[in-house]
């Protein structure tokens, strides 16, 4: 409007102005829509796959609970679904899984967090430049390798260190827990270290300026400020430990579900049951087939509860820094 008025008042000045560029699009940008659609499709795919997994878990699970009551499943103490007169008390293998997870966390949380504190606060730059990538490589070690390490090295070693325990057979649920612990140490260390390093340097300086020494700065300032990231690391590791299959299959053995709490003996976990049972020659639609999915659903539910619980915990305790 103003431009055209000016143009009409003084045509000479208007002639010298650069021509106005058109505001309308020269041609419709179809490419942009295609890209947008493709990205949306990718996002939808991952959600869709998750839903599909849940549905495929649930359908046989419902079939299972038509034959076995929920109460019997959750409170029974005998687990022998493969037999003709099978028992479907899931507690022994739940206890097996929990044993592995608790031992793994007992091993991995102290080692992982102390390494993280060392790397984030103490380690000279050169040391860190070596250890941090090493941790990340360790995270990628195939679990079957750790399983073999546990079976052939840790298990005999454990017998030498703790000769008073009731070692029988080649398997040990306790050693399996330790092996799973070793698996998740790098995960805890690496993720917690990232969380601690992202605590602003200003907070450290503030504490140092009050005459705090390094240990106090690390434990009273950096660690609490990073707690949400640290809890996330532990939860991630815990989910991994719950779901870990190969190591427990190799080190704790796939048979012998029991409620003995004897760490020196083999025991079955939920994942080991699934992994050991879901072989090619299992007939679909049978009770045993449905049992696998029922155990899978329970596993899924346990991980979900752990995650929800952790989210609440973090909300309550985290220290938000800017």
């Amino acid at each position: 409007m103003t431009a055209s008025q000016r143009g009409s008042v003084s045509p000479e000045a208007g002639a010298e102005e650069t021509p106005r560029r058109p505001l309308g699009a020269a041609r419709p940008r179809h490419g942009e829509k295609v890209v947008k659609g493709f990205l949306a499709l990718c996002a939808a795919l991952s959600v869709g796959v998750t839903i599909a997994i849940v549905v495929s878990l649930l359908t046989p699970t419902i079939g299972f609970f038509r034959e076995v009551s929920v109460v019997e499943f959750l409170t029974g103490t005998q687990w022998s679904p493969g037999f003709a007169r099978g028992e479907f008390g899931v507690l022994p293998i739940v206890v097996g899984t929990l044993t592995v997870v608790v031992i793994a966390l007992l091993v991995a949380i102290p080692i992982g967090l102390l390494s993280a504190i060392y790397l984030a606060e103490y380690a000279p730059r050169r040391v860190r430049a070596v250890i941090k990538p090493a941790l990340e490589v360790l995270e990628g070690i195939p679990t079957v390798a750790i399983g073999l390490f546990g079976l052939f090295l840790l298990r005999p070693l454990a017998e030498q260190i703790f000769p008073f325990m009731n070692w029988r057979g080649d398997f040990s649920i306790g050693v399996a827990g330790v092996a799973v612990g070793l698996l998740i140490v790098p995960l805890i260390a690496s993720v917690s270290e990232d969380a601690m390093r992202s605590v602003p340097g200003g907070l450290r300086e503030g504490a140092y300026a009050l005459g705090a020494n390094k240990m106090r700065v690390s434990l009273r300032v950096v660690f609490p400020a990073a707690i949400s990231g640290i809890v996330a690391a532990v939860v991630l590791a815990m989910s991994r430990a719950i779901g870990e299959t190969m190591i427990v299959l190799l080190v704790a053995g796939a048979g012998n579900p029991n409620l003995s709490f004897d760490l020196a003996r083999g025991a079955q976990t939920m994942t080991a049951y699934i992994g050991g049972t879901a072989t090619g020659d299992i007939a679909t639609g049978t009770t045993v087939y449905n049992t696998i999915f029922a155990v899978g659903s329970l596993l899924f539910l346990m991980t979900l509860v752990v995650n929800l619980f952790a989210i609440r915990l973090v909300r309550r305790f985290r220290e938000v820094y800017e």
Binding site: L203, E205, A209, A212
Partner: peptide, 18 residues
Amino acid sequence: VQVRKVIGMVFQKPNPFP
């Protein structure tokens, strides 16, 4: 560490602990 107990400091950007 002892020096900083006697000689305190206030920084450019307020940095209260969370």
